[in-house]
């Protein structure tokens, strides 16, 4: 773990008690996110982990106001560093924030760039939009950015179309585009999922370098706990639209407080587990309509008790930890929590 920074400093993003609702075709209002609270400090890398369908991507899209029309903010709020209420801003104000204060990298670099525009122009477009730079200046700056993110032959590459670039190169272009206006926060939604394993490490390393050099905060979203554990200062584990555990990355990984986190960790294929049968969490994330009154994980939890089915556990502090930590599990109320149950 490099430079685990305390979250007490300046905040660039705060999500407080966020509730998102999906308007279904039949008129039903289904909660997509519930009571989600999250803080990202300046220069901090915060990871959000969870299986697909747990609400990670929706959370990231809501920060930039890019939610599909069927999903709306139904409670709580999203605030940037200047305590602006992002969820109440109009489209025009959001446009000034997107790409400038908060930028985003998406999962699939193969489809996230416009196939009909040179990659250089796509990056220069963002620079010109937010800084009012001339065409020349924007081009020079883009070439500089290409060099910075480790793209070869940046001058020639500027004039290439996306289909001439490999997936890793395209993701570097996406990163160059995202950091072009020195945003306070970079949201990376599964930035390495679509890439080869060897490229994954390079891209993560690049993001870390950007944090070291520019102090950019990063919200890193992934389903792969193993992958992001080496990069993040803090980790929030999401399950079925809620944050179920949150804390310093090393702590969460070493002593998971929530059975779901423990399950995710046990599912990792690690060299030390060679020869043993790979663990998997039975079942899958319950669909929006199937979420009952109790803990959403109860149906898959090996420790589920009657109380877990009847009552939703709230997120609360975990005692006996060096860094602030919290988890949402009834078991924690008992002496020693999960550690006591023994995993």
């Amino acid at each position: 773990m490099v430079g685990a920074k305390p979250s007490g400093g300046e905040t660039v993003l705060e999500v407080r008690d966020l509730r998102l609702e999906l308007s279904a075709k039949d008129g039903a209002r289904l909660p997509v996110l519930e009571e989600v609270s999250l803080k990202v400090g300046r220069g901090e890398i915060v990871g959000i982990v969870g299986e697909s369908g747990c609400g990670k991507s929706v959370l990231s899209l809501s920060v930039l106001g890019l939610l599909p029309p069927s999903i709306r903010v139904a409670g709580g709020g999203i605030y940037n560093g200047e305590r602006k209420e992002l969820h109440r801003l109009g489209e025009k104000s959001l446009q000034r924030i997107r790409g400038k204060e908060i930028a985003m990298i998406f999962q699939d670099p193969m489809t996230s760039l416009n196939p009909g525009m040179t990659v250089g122009k796509q990056v220069a477009e963002a620079i010109r939009l937010h800084t009012g730079a001339s065409k020349r200046e924007a081009e020079e700056k883009t070439v500089g950015l290409f060099r910075k993110v480790g793209l070869p032959r940046p001058e020639t590459l500027y004039h290439e179309y996306p289909h001439r670039l490999s997936g890793g190169m395209r993701q570097r272009v996406m990163i160059a585009m995202a950091v072009s206006c020195q945003p306070d926060l970079l949201i990376a939604d599964e930035p390495t999922t679509a890439l080869d394993v060897t490229i994954q490490a390079q891209i993560l390393k690049l993001m870390k370098t950007l944090r070291e050099e520019d102090g950019t905060s990063i919200l890193l979203i992934s389903h792969d706990l193993g992958l992001i554990s080496g990069v993040c200062d803090r980790i929030a584990v999401m399950y079925a639209g809620r944050i179920v555990e949150e804390g310093a990355a090393a702590e969460v990984l070493r002593h998971p407080a929530h059975p779901y986190t423990a399950g995710l960790l046990a599912s990792l294929a690690l060299p030390s587990k060679k020869g043993t049968r790979l663990h998997s969490i039975p079942g899958s994330v319950p669909a929006l309509r199937e979420r009952g009154p109790g803990c959403a994980f109860a149906s898959r939890c090996p420790y589920a008790a009657d109380r877990c089915l009847a009552e939703k556990p709230a997120l609360r502090g975990v005692a006996g930890s060096a860094f602030p930590r919290s988890a949402a599990c009834h078991l924690l109320g008992e002496e020693g929590g999960l550690a006591n149950v023994g995993s």
Partner: peptide, 15 residues
Amino acid sequence: NLDYVRTARSKGLGD
């Protein structure tokens, strides 16, 4: 509906 349109919006471009 394609991803690149979302990218374009995420960099702050208007409709």
